[in-house]
Simulated scan of single mutants.
Amino acid sequence: MNDAILSNPKAPRVRRAAALARKKERQEQGRFLVEGPQSVRELLAHRPELAEVVYASMGNEPWQHEVDRLASEAGVRIERATDEVIAALGETVNPQGVVAIARVWEADLAEALQVARLVAILHEVRDPGNAGTVLRAADAAGADAVIFAGESIDPFHPKVVRSTTGSLFHLPVVVAPTLAAAVGAASTAGLTTLAADVRGDELPVAQAEGTLGGRVAWVFGNEARGLSEADRALTDRSLKLPIYGAAESLNLATAASVLLYATAFAQRA
């Protein structure tokens, strides 16, 4: 641990770290920001080899002892910083006192799918909150990988990282150049590819047929446009959640969570 307190929010290293909020800087530096005690704990506990430095406030917060211990065990440098520096590093309105810098990594697509039973593929998903929530739901449902395909948001965007609350560090995350590449790799690995689409068959039909009990890769499309006809044609089948009430539809993150859990239940039945 560095005993000196970092107090200048305009210091070059602070400005260089804060610039990681921009995709171009993340690509050039090969690093990204991890904000908040929960996400930093999960980084240090599950992927400590990625962590480069932890900037932590000087207050006696409940999380500090555990973060200090995990960083020490992993050999990760901790630097004490003022609240002003922590605020300059992060994007949140109410900073939580700790920000880490980690190295960007990318799992291999074929390797991630080789023995996977449940996978989520995001295609042109642009909202960071939605993307992070789907990744978190996939983790909770026991998925083996999440693939960001085509023009989907960068999985290392600060808001995506925060929304996952640490799930980003629990399972392989892959960036695929196109939906065709992601679906093709899933099919090659032996997974049934299912498009989540309102024009598909109703989910209970597929459940009764046993479709969800095998190895499944779900494809979730853009929040506003969903999946095009060409996108759906890449997959084995399209399925939709029935609406039993008066709601017009479900948002992406809610629908994805239900479908991932329905598949997890079927696979464990």
Rank of each mutant, 00 (worst) to 15 (best):
T133H: 07
E106V: 08
A21F: 04
E106S: 13
F148Q: 02
V173K: 08
L203H: 02
V258Q: 11
L227S: 07
T133R: 12
A138L: 12
A143W: 03
A149R: 02
E202V: 10
A264V: 06
V216H: 01
Q267L: 09
G190V: 01
A45G: 05
Y55A: 01
L6A: 13
D83Y: 00
Q114C: 00
R103I: 05
P62G: 05
D231K: 01
A189Q: 01
A131F: 04
Q114G: 04
L212N: 07
A224W: 00
D236M: 06
D108N: 15
I101C: 02
E61W: 07
L20M: 08
V161L: 05
E248L: 11
E61R: 13
A247L: 10
R13C: 05
D108A: 14
L109S: 02
I5R: 02
Y55R: 02
G150W: 01
A176M: 12
A180F: 01
P95W: 08
P9E: 13
H123V: 05
D68K: 15
A264M: 03
A208E: 05
V85M: 05
T188K: 12
L239Q: 04
L168E: 07
A189E: 03
Q207D: 02
A230P: 00
E66I: 01
H65T: 12
V40Q: 11
G213I: 05
E73W: 00
V98C: 09
L168K: 10
P172N: 07
A176R: 07
G184T: 10
R15K: 15
